[in-house]
Computed example of a mutant assay.
Amino acid sequence: MENTTSPAKSGLLYGLLFGVIMILEFVIGYVMNIDPQTNQGYGITINVLNFFVLPSTFIYLGCNNYKMKLNSGFISFGECLRIGVTICIIAGLISALFSSVFGMIFPEYFEEMYRKVSKMMMEKNPQMTSEQLDMAVSMMKKFSNPVIAIPASIAIYAFIGLIYSLIIGAILKKDANQSY
């Protein structure tokens, strides 16, 4: 029996959900005017969610959905890898595109963030010269540029997806019998 259902079908749905949740986290933080630099509990919570809890949860759900509903109870290690990396790439792309568009619509948000980071850097390291501070802020601005930020976000989330997919794939893997 030939498998005609693509693992991407499951990966696409859960990647979209993961990306939308990351957008909602950002929007809620913006609307409620929560500053991750001053409210470190919020920043840590968002990072734990976006880099640990949500990727592993959505990869597990995506692989399990493919295994149980789309592929008659079977899933190979390679299919788990494809699903997990697809989920994370789609989520990273959606999040990065939203952040870039948001930065174009509300450039004052990122300018305020740069000012806050500059102030925080000066408080933590008072012997820092103004040239060093300007260089650090210019590097932040370069890495915030969509041309760099979007591919970097995709690469980071692809790596995260690979790591979690390896773990989840080892747990969920169930190959079909190869008897003829």
Results as ranks from 00 to 15, higher is better:
residue 1 M to H: 13
residue 3 N to F: 15
residue 5 T to V: 15
residue 8 A to R: 07
residue 8 A to C: 15
residue 11 G to W: 11
residue 11 G to T: 12
residue 11 G to I: 09
residue 13 L to H: 10
residue 13 L to D: 03
residue 14 Y to L: 05
residue 15 G to S: 03
residue 16 L to K: 07
residue 17 L to G: 09
residue 20 V to P: 02
residue 23 I to P: 09
residue 24 L to Q: 05
residue 24 L to A: 15
residue 26 F to Q: 12
residue 26 F to E: 02
residue 26 F to L: 13
residue 27 V to H: 06
residue 27 V to L: 14
residue 27 V to P: 01
residue 28 I to C: 12
residue 28 I to W: 05
residue 28 I to K: 05
residue 29 G to Q: 07
residue 32 M to F: 08
residue 36 P to L: 10
residue 37 Q to I: 15
residue 38 T to F: 09
residue 38 T to Q: 11
residue 43 G to W: 08
residue 44 I to F: 02
residue 46 I to Q: 02
residue 47 N to D: 14
residue 47 N to T: 15
residue 48 V to F: 08
residue 50 N to D: 09
residue 51 F to G: 08
residue 51 F to K: 04
residue 54 L to P: 00
residue 54 L to A: 07
residue 56 S to H: 03
residue 59 I to A: 09
residue 61 L to I: 06
residue 65 N to M: 10
residue 69 K to L: 15
residue 70 L to V: 02
residue 70 L to K: 01
residue 70 L to G: 03
residue 72 S to P: 15
residue 74 F to L: 06
residue 74 F to R: 04
residue 76 S to L: 12
residue 79 E to W: 00
residue 79 E to Q: 07
residue 81 L to N: 03
residue 82 R to C: 13
residue 82 R to S: 15
residue 82 R to N: 05
residue 83 I to T: 06
residue 85 V to H: 08
residue 85 V to W: 00
residue 87 I to C: 04
residue 87 I to G: 05
residue 91 A to I: 00
residue 93 L to C: 01
residue 95 S to D: 13
residue 95 S to H: 05
residue 97 L to Q: 09
residue 98 F to C: 09
residue 98 F to S: 04
residue 99 S to T: 09
residue 100 S to L: 05
residue 101 V to P: 12
residue 102 F to P: 12
residue 103 G to N: 11
residue 103 G to T: 12
residue 104 M to A: 14
residue 104 M to S: 12
residue 105 I to V: 15
residue 107 P to Y: 03
residue 108 E to D: 07
residue 109 Y to S: 03
residue 109 Y to C: 14
residue 110 F to L: 11
residue 110 F to M: 10
residue 116 K to R: 14
residue 121 M to A: 10
residue 122 M to L: 15
residue 126 P to G: 01
residue 127 Q to K: 02
residue 128 M to Q: 06
residue 128 M to N: 05
residue 128 M to W: 04
residue 131 E to G: 04
residue 132 Q to P: 03
residue 133 L to A: 01
residue 133 L to E: 04
residue 134 D to L: 06
residue 134 D to S: 10
residue 136 A to P: 02
residue 137 V to G: 09
residue 140 M to D: 04
residue 142 K to E: 12
residue 142 K to R: 11
residue 142 K to Q: 14
residue 143 F to W: 08
residue 143 F to V: 13
residue 145 N to E: 02
residue 146 P to A: 02
residue 147 V to D: 06
residue 148 I to C: 11
residue 148 I to N: 03
residue 148 I to D: 06
residue 149 A to D: 10
residue 149 A to C: 10
residue 150 I to Q: 06
residue 152 A to S: 01
residue 152 A to L: 15
residue 153 S to E: 03
residue 153 S to W: 03
residue 155 A to E: 07
residue 156 I to N: 04
residue 157 Y to T: 09
residue 158 A to R: 03
residue 161 G to A: 06
residue 163 I to A: 00
residue 164 Y to C: 07
residue 165 S to C: 10
residue 167 I to Y: 11
residue 167 I to A: 07
residue 167 I to R: 09
residue 169 G to M: 10
residue 169 G to S: 00
residue 171 I to F: 03
residue 172 L to M: 05
residue 173 K to Q: 08
residue 174 K to G: 08
residue 175 D to W: 11
residue 176 A to M: 15
residue 177 N to T: 14
residue 177 N to Y: 13
residue 178 Q to K: 12
residue 180 Y to Q: 11
